[in-house]
Structure formats: C-alpha cells, structure tokens
Simulated scan of single mutants.
Amino acid sequence: MNLRTTLGAGLSALALVLSMAGSAQAAQGNFTYKYVDGYGAERQVTLHDPHSGKCINLHAVGDDKEQPGYGPRNDTDTAVTVYLGANCQGPEWRLKAHGQPAKDTLEVRSVRFDAPQVS
C-alpha cells in the first residue's frame, strides 16, 4: 500500500509541474504584423500563443537586410516589446496586453513577450 500511495503522489506532482510549465512558457492569444513580400503583396503573419521571455526574430522580416514588418497588434495576455532591429536590438516600443493595433508606421523585426503573471 505504501508503494501505491507514493506512486499516486508522484504522478500528481508530475501532472502539476507539467501543467505549470506550459502556462509559464507562452503568452496566450495572438500577435499579428504585416509585411510586403518579394512580389509587392501585403501579407499578415499571426503568432499564436508565442513563447515568452525570449527574443523572437519575426518570419520574413527578422533580418536587418530585409524590409521590416509593420502595424503590429498584441492581442495576447502579456505585454510585448517590439524592436526595429533583429535579435531584439535597436529602438524599441512596448505594446500593452490586448491593446489596440499599432499604426502602420511602427516597424518591427523582432519581439520579446513578458513572462505571464503567475496567480
């Protein structure tokens, strides 16, 4: 009976750790931005539940040799810092959680989402 109790407690602890690890690693919601592709067409990219706490170079615009993306919108549950340069370098701006879309004049190449608040 002691083995069964120990095994049950161990599995419960593992389930708790796994559930907490998933929520601490990602902002919940969508982050979108626009860019112009090589054919001159405007495209929109959506990051769904993006990773938090690390720099993300954005698809198609995350290199300083490319034209930057623009018009970011943060519809996640955490604030985000957007950077004009790749690798979270250069001028930066903060966008609130569930905020209004930024103007198309705000250019972006990389982002870093705040770690979600643990309650």
Rank of each mutant, 00 (worst) to 15 (best):
G29K: 09
A102F: 01
Q89W: 03
D75G: 06
A9P: 05
A9L: 07
A60E: 12
T76I: 12
L84V: 09
A13G: 04
G90W: 09
Q100N: 12
T105N: 08
V17L: 13
H59V: 01
Q89D: 15
Y35V: 05
A115R: 14
S119T: 14
L84K: 13
P72V: 05
S23N: 09
L106A: 08
V111Y: 01
R4W: 00
L58H: 07
S23F: 00
E42M: 02
L95S: 09
V108S: 05
L16V: 15
E107H: 03
Q25R: 12
V82R: 10
S110D: 09
C88S: 12
H98L: 05
A60F: 02
G62R: 12
L106R: 15
L84A: 06
A115G: 10
L106T: 14
T5H: 04
G10N: 04
E92N: 15
F31Y: 08
I56S: 02
D64W: 05
T76V: 09
N87I: 02
P68Y: 02
T32Q: 15
V82A: 05
L7N: 10
L16C: 11
L58M: 04
G69L: 00
P91D: 14
S119A: 10
Y70K: 10
S110T: 13
M20D: 08
G22M: 06
T5P: 01
V61K: 10
H51E: 13
D77H: 14
S19K: 04
H48D: 07
V61W: 03
G85I: 12
P116Y: 03
A97P: 15
A97L: 09
R109F: 00
Q100L: 04
C55L: 06
Y83W: 07
M1T: 13
F113L: 09
V17A: 14
L106H: 11
G99K: 14
R109W: 00
G69Y: 00
D104I: 00
S23E: 10
L58W: 01
K103F: 00
G85L: 08
F113W: 08
R4C: 02
V61C: 06
P101F: 00
N87P: 05
T81W: 01
G90P: 13
R73S: 11
Q44E: 14
A24R: 15
L18G: 11
L95R: 11
D63H: 06
T46Y: 00
I56D: 03
D63S: 05
T105A: 04
D63G: 03
S12H: 02
N57W: 00
Y83R: 12
D77K: 12
S52R: 12
Y70S: 06
V80N: 07
L47Y: 14
G90R: 14
F31A: 08
K54L: 03
G90T: 13
G8I: 02
D37E: 04
V17Y: 11
T6M: 01
D77W: 03
V17S: 14
T78M: 02
